[in-house]
Amino acid sequence: MSIEAETEGSARIIRVGHDRIDAAGAIGFKERIRDLIPGPEKRVIMDLSRVNFLDSSGLGAIVAVMKLLAPERKLELAGLTPTVEKVFRLTRMDSIFTIHPDLARGLGHAG
């Protein structure tokens, strides 16, 4: 269970290895991500394909990361699993993020 980052071209990629982003882990999650995004990359793409559960605390943590980056940099999301997608859709927060089906398509590679 880890969160790792790498830079590819103009994008910073954050790979979230956690099974859950919930009330027990949301603060640690936000702090870890903050340490991983010091660079100048305009785009930050968060790969959530391994996250099976997100609650409102986890959603708040992802919004907080978006606000840390704004206005010069942008947070995009990739690979939402069904439960995570449900939380974004129900709260209509899917309207404020660019959401890619998976990381490869987020990076513009032919899917």
């Binding site: 409102s56 708040g60 943590a61 606000k67 709260t91 404020i96």
Partner: peptide, 8 residues
């Protein structure tokens, strides 16, 4: 309101 970027 999603546009206000609420965290909670």
């Amino acid at each position: 309101d999603a546009a206000c970027l609420p965290e909670g």
